[in-house]
Amino acid sequence: MNNFNYERPRSLREAVSLRSRNAGAFYLAGGTDLIVQMRDDLLKPSLLIDLKALKQLEGIDMKKDVLHIAALTKVSAVEMDRTLLRTLPFLCDAAGFLGSPLTRNKATIGGNICNASPAAEFGTPLIALNARAVISDGEKTRVMAVEDFMTGVKKNALKRGELLSGFIIPDPKGHKGRFFKKSRIKLVDLATVNITVIKKGTEYRIAIGSCFIKPLRIRTAEEMLRGIKEPDARLLGKAARICAEEIKPIDDLRGTADFRRDIVFHYVKKLLGELTAKGGQR
């Protein structure tokens, strides 16, 4: 690992300003992506800006029916948060599938989305929840859909003078959801496929990860199911088929594109079935 400068700013403004002034600077959250990449010489930052001292960037809050999750919130905190376990347990499930318990004590939810891996564990639940990324330049904030925030493999929409301060989930109540991850071993592996499906009233949302350059919503399938209270097995099968067709997976060390399509087909159908009262029963 190369040597580098290290700062632990006390204010958001200082953090952002350090970043603006240093071309080779990176924010350090949990470091579980960053330090691995530095170790492998894939990244050689000139400066790490450790965000740990910025306590306002940590925590989970429900304010007036809007859920705020700050960027530096540890993955283990998301996994065990009482409010979340009650309202959005599938988000906790996703957290519980990220890395190992040891990783999760360090990794942050913001780091996961900023790192923008196609397999990012929080990708599918957040985009299925229509979560929005809150971006700060030290003074003002702007907000955009997480779906648009992740722009490609390891790419995000942040500009140089900005950082991700957190996520908001508008209207978090009344979501029924399921998170699923397929990997080579049960835990502690990157996803071959990850899936979140949500049912809110008669609205359906399906998000699939590790099957394109970023996690994807499959809106054609969602639309097909919209308004139907209890879709039957045939319809669920059809929706699952659309998902399997619309993803654009590649062959890699975790699985072939074909296998990914088979997994998506089976599990989208199964998860939707679990969410709807009668449909999907075999």
Partner: peptide
């Protein structure tokens, strides 16, 4: 059920724990 050193054109492609997995207590 799991282990295999994978080659392409004579080059090993999974020489790390990221892609050469071994079973954990959960498996």
């Amino acid at each position: 059920v799991l282990e295999e050193l994978k080659y392409k054109d004579g080059k090993v492609r999974n020489a790390s724990f990221v892609d050469y997995k071994i079973l954990t207590a959960a498996d």
